[in-house]
């Protein structure tokens, strides 16, 4: 029961994080300077997330030649084709290939 209540506490807290600005700002004029800042949330958080996903349990970033190669090729394919599946196939393909060759 304690386990379930702990999970519920995390669930409620996470919902509040997700909803607080959406609900609080529903009928308010959002100030322009705030809107300027908000447009950089997506690129900054996703950029940070890409690196954070590569952090191992010791706090080191596991990034080497295979990862960088995959990012360069995946980024180029995304830019050229604007297609998620092609980006995924190209990026993972290069990642596995370079890792196998090293």
């Amino acid at each position: 029961m304690t386990d379930f209540l702990a999970i519920v506490a995390v669930g409620v807290g996470s919902y509040l994080f997700r909803g607080i600005f959406i609900l609080a700002l529903a009928n308010k004029k959002i100030p322009d300077p705030f809107l300027v800042v908000l447009q950089f949330v997506a690129p900054a958080v996703l950029g940070a997330l890409i690196v954070a996903l590569l952090i191992d349990s010791d706090g080191n970033v596991a990034i080497g030649v295979p990862e960088v190669s995959a990012f360069v090729v995946g980024g180029a394919v995304a830019y050229k084709t604007r297609d998620h599946i092609l980006t995924l196939v190209a990026g993972m393909g290069v990642f596995w290939l370079v890792r196998a060759l090293m």
Partner: peptide
Amino acid sequence: NLEFAVSILFLGLIVLG
């Protein structure tokens, strides 16, 4: 290392944005 695919996809989404 399938989890690396998440990083690739997020990179693609950044590029689109």
